[in-house]
């Protein structure tokens, strides 16, 4: 099925002896926004890391834009158009804001250069004022913006956001969701891991819920919104 941008089949991932993912199937179509939800410790981050080649699945297959990337190095996976905004942000604190962005700049698939430094500056005016600051001097929200901006500098087809709004003030959080919406409008596919069901379901086309390393629900956001009993059962909200 080459219509999928990302397609994972039967992913089994272990941390040492503990079996975290039990045969997860997960796919993203071009331009699609997928919300990945579940309580803490259900395997969301592990699934993302398995897709990104950062934690090797023991069984299963990961295909990106049609190519088998199951054994590929993380940098090769990124080069196929996947950008990662990790939990805890992962900015480079020893680099300036400008350097954090510039070092990541790269043409996307097919040589696309939609996201230039200037466009990232327009999208994140807060960062534009702080270009010379060190990454570590930024507030949590600014660091998050920097990480998203840095990911956009790689001109990705798919953006993977792990807990992008965690620990942020509501106002900053709303700003981040606004940016995620802009990214969706720009046609970039996204996988969003977040605990805020209202916000995720508002932006996501589809939602996948993991419980104990297995998919228990997969369907359109609107459908899940109409089933509040499932929220209680799977998400504890």
């Amino acid at each position: 099925m080459t219509s999928h941008l990302l397609e994972a089949r039967g992913i089994h991932t272990y941390y040492g002896a503990s079996h975290i993912l039990h045969g997860v199937d997960f796919s993203v179509r071009p331009g699609e926004t997928v919300g990945l939800m579940g309580r803490n410790g259900m395997g969301k981050t592990t699934l993302l890391r398995s897709l990104l080649g950062l934690t090797r699945p023991r069984h299963g297959e990961v295909r990106i834009a049609g190519a088998d990337m199951t054994q590929a190095a993380p940098y090769a996976i990124a080069r196929r158009g996947v950008a990662y905004v990790p939990e805890g942000r992962g900015i480079f604190p020893n680099l300036s804001v400008r350097e954090n962005l510039v070092m990541a700049a790269r043409a996307g698939s097919g040589g696309r250069r939609d996201w230039t430094f200037e466009r990232v500056m327009q999208t994140f005016p807060r960062l534009a004022q702080r270009l010379r600051h060190g990454g570590a001097q930024l507030s949590g929200g600014e660091q998050q913006m920097l990480t998203i901006g840095r990911a956009l500098m790689t001109n990705p087809d798919l953006l993977i956001l792990d807990e992008a709004t965690e620990g942020l003030a509501p106002k900053i959080s709303r700003e981040i969701w606004g940016i995620i919406n802009q990214i969706k409008q720009a046609g970039i596919a996204a996988v969003i891991v977040d605990k805020n069901f209202a916000a995720v379901s508002a932006v996501a086309d589809r939602i996948v819920i993991l419980v104990k390393g297995a998919t228990v629900y997969e369907g359109a956001s609107a459908e899940l919104r109409a089933q509040p009993e499932l929220h209680v059962k799977y998400l504890g909200v």
Binding site: Y75, A78, R79, F92, P93, T154
Partner: peptide, 12 residues
Amino acid sequence: ANREMVQSLGIN
């Protein structure tokens, strides 16, 4: 600062 993150930006 962060080896893994550098790789995830597509750098070998």
